[in-house]
Amino acid sequence: MSLPQPVPPSWKDLGKSSNDLLGKDYYLHGTSLEVKTFTPNNVTFKVAGIRDAKTAVINGDIEAKYADKSHGLTLTNAWTTHNVLRTQVELENQIAKGLKFDVGASLQPDKLAKTTTVNATYKQPGLHTRAALDVFKGPTLTADAVLGRDGFLLGAEASYNVTEGRVTKYSAAVGFSAPEYAVTVHGLGNLSTFAASYYHRVSKDVEAGAKAIYDTKATTSGVSLEVGTKAYLDQAAFVKAKINNAGVLALGYTQALRPGVKASFGIALDTQRLNDAAPTGPAHKVGAHFVFEA
């Protein structure tokens, strides 16, 4: 008798462990700040901003999220410094168990730019499928599905332009996921770009991962390769490091200063241009990120 199958990850989360290891917690493009506050009636306020190190431009947004867990309802509203208004309404596990609907819309009044996307997600043991309809672009229907059994994963995604009556994009992926490691291979962009990722939890304090990308349409030949690691110094701090085949080395350090306060610092060095005058020159990048929660 086979064991009950868990719900597999969604299409966008295939290879997530490796992507998070190589992509998150590296703050390299300026200084950013995030402040979160929570109210007793399940409302979360978030203010975030970033000052770009190259242009010195400050971009930010303010967001309010209300969650009614008993009715599976979540309402999110946001306003950005680019004068973009965003609204998202989510309804989960009300029509059927494992079924979630959400509608997202944005409006930029000064440019009369607007978007609306209707999404549906259905999750069951061994199956995770999603569909999204972009109302004003096409309209375009995008659907994906991931099947999982005994750790093996098989996924596919396709986009269909309703007006033109044709498939505009398709991708596929296979992988294997276990508690200590995961391997995923993607065929993206109508199978013109291939990506392979690997993640390994070496111990409770050390993680390692790698990602290789081969683009058949790229003007330069060869495979892009990136490897990285994460090490926990203690319960409140960790360091990360990664390097790619172009010789760019990135380092990240995150420290929990106290409950609700976290600071992260990052630096990227082009090891082939270490003789540049200053670490903040065009070949190198530095940044910092601060989070306050109350």
Rank of each mutant, 00 (worst) to 15 (best):
Q5E: 14
P6M: 08
P8S: 08
S10F: 11
W11T: 01
K16S: 07
S17Q: 15
N19E: 13
L22D: 04
D25Q: 08
D25S: 13
D25E: 12
Y27T: 14
S32V: 05
S32G: 12
L33C: 08
V35N: 04
K36H: 11
F38K: 11
T39E: 07
T44P: 02
F45I: 09
K46A: 10
A48W: 07
G49F: 01
G49D: 00
I50P: 05
K54E: 09
A56W: 08
A56L: 10
V57S: 13
I58K: 02
G60W: 03
A64K: 02
A64Y: 00
A64V: 14
S70A: 15
L73I: 15
T76K: 13
N77S: 13
W79D: 12
H82T: 13
H82E: 15
R86N: 11
L91W: 15
K97S: 11
K100L: 08
V103Q: 04
S106H: 09
L107P: 00
Q108T: 15
Q108G: 05
P109Y: 03
T115L: 09
T115R: 11
T117H: 01
T121F: 01
Y122E: 00
K123V: 08
K123D: 08
P125G: 03
A131I: 08
A131C: 05
A132N: 07
A132H: 06
A132G: 12
D134H: 08
V135S: 05
V135F: 04
G138S: 06
T142Q: 03
D144E: 04
R149C: 06
G151F: 05
F152V: 15
Y160D: 04
N161S: 09
G165R: 05
R166S: 13
K169L: 12
A173P: 06
A173W: 04
A173T: 07
G175L: 02
S177E: 09
S177T: 09
P179F: 12
Y181E: 02
H186N: 02
L188H: 06
L188P: 00
S192N: 15
A195D: 06
Y199Q: 04
R201V: 05
S203W: 02
D205K: 13
K211L: 12
A212R: 01
S221E: 11
L225F: 10
T229R: 07
A231P: 01
Y232S: 15
D234L: 08
A236K: 14
K240F: 07
A241P: 01
N244I: 09
N244H: 10
N245K: 05
N245P: 01
G252Q: 04
T254C: 06
T254Q: 09
A256K: 11
L257R: 07
K262N: 08
L269T: 13
T271I: 05
D276Q: 14
D276I: 11
A278F: 10
G281Y: 07
H284A: 02
K285F: 00
K285S: 11
K285M: 09
V286G: 03
G287Q: 02
G287T: 06
H289Y: 02
A294M: 12
